[in-house]
């Protein structure tokens, strides 16, 4: 072996070590790590492969978009990443925790403590007022009566809705409903926010207001935000965009 060959091997070895340390660092900085996600739906003899070997990393404090045409598997992937749906194969690590290794009740508790959800259809409780909708989420996290009311009011204030606290969802506009939903998602200070088409039901003005709120969550409050969307307006605030088509994750853009 020549000296040059030895040098090359040594440099290859150091490069390997460097790669390992980068990988470890990435795991630490990644809030979401998904590996080999497969989702197969079986209906009688027919099998439908909704997600095909998906790998995805989302850094802490980033806004990650998941885009793609209808039926591409975006919502299925979001459900899996949130621990709501169990994949046929693969693993998901959220904040360093392998969520599908947790028992059902521990996984529910993990979601409760760490994930805030924003839904396309708002999913507010119609019988409850805006403040009560937020209070429910706080109550679930063990925050009781007076403290919950105080915090709920503070959260509504953050989304500019403290004046509408006692209104029922049917008395609010679409944008206001989504802001209540965001306030609810922020209850208990979760580190991950998962949003499904958060601007789909909103007009331009309200859409921009919600986008601005999501940007603030990530950039000023350090939350990791995963958004499934068709809305090109959100791309401007995203750190990374992944495209899903026919269950396959295409190369995304990272800014």
């Amino acid at each position: 072996m020549t000296a040059t060959q030895i040098d090359l091997l040594q440099s290859a070895g150091s490069a390997s070590q460097a790669n390992l340390s980068i990988s470890a660092e990435r795991t630490e900085v990644n809030a979401i790590v998904a590996r080999g996600i497969e989702m197969i739906y079986q209906s009688g003899a027919e099998r439908f492969r909704a997600l095909k070997n998906i790998d995805l990393d989302v850094k802490r404090g980033d806004i990650q978009l998941l885009m793609g045409p209808s039926g591409s598997g975006k919502t299925t992937l979001l459900s899996i990443l949130a621990g709501i749906l169990t994949p046929t194969a693969g693993s998901v690590s959220l904040l360093g925790e392998e969520i599908f290794k947790l028992s059902g009740s521990k996984l529910a508790h993990f979601r409760l403590q760490n994930i805030g959800f924003i839904f396309q259809g708002f999913n507010l409780f119609p019988a409850l007022t805006a403040i009560e909708n937020v209070e429910v989420a706080l109550n679930l996290k063990g925050i009781r009566k007076g403290a919950a009311r105080q915090q709920a009011l503070g959260l509504l204030d953050q989304v500019g809705l403290s004046q509408q606290a006692k209104r029922h969802p049917q008395d609010l506009s679409g944008g206001q409903k989504q802001r209540v939903a965001i306030a609810r998602a922020l209850a208990g200070n979760p580190r991950l926010i998962m949003a499904d088409e958060p601007t789909a039901a909103l007009d331009s003005h309200n859409g921009h207001a919600v986008i601005e709120l999501l940007r603030n969550l990530a950039k000023e409050k350090g939350r990791t935000v995963l958004i499934v969307t068709h809305d090109p307006r959100i791309i401007d605030v995203a750190d990374s965009v992944a495209y899903l088509e026919d269950g396959v994750l295409k190369a995304g853009a990272h800014r």
């Binding site: 709501i84 529910a108 979601r111 409760l112 403590q113 959800f117 999913n123 409780f125 429910v136 679930l140």
Partner: peptide, 10 residues
Amino acid sequence: EFGTLKAMGA
């Protein structure tokens, strides 16, 4: 609504 509660982790 019950589904939402479940998703939230109730």
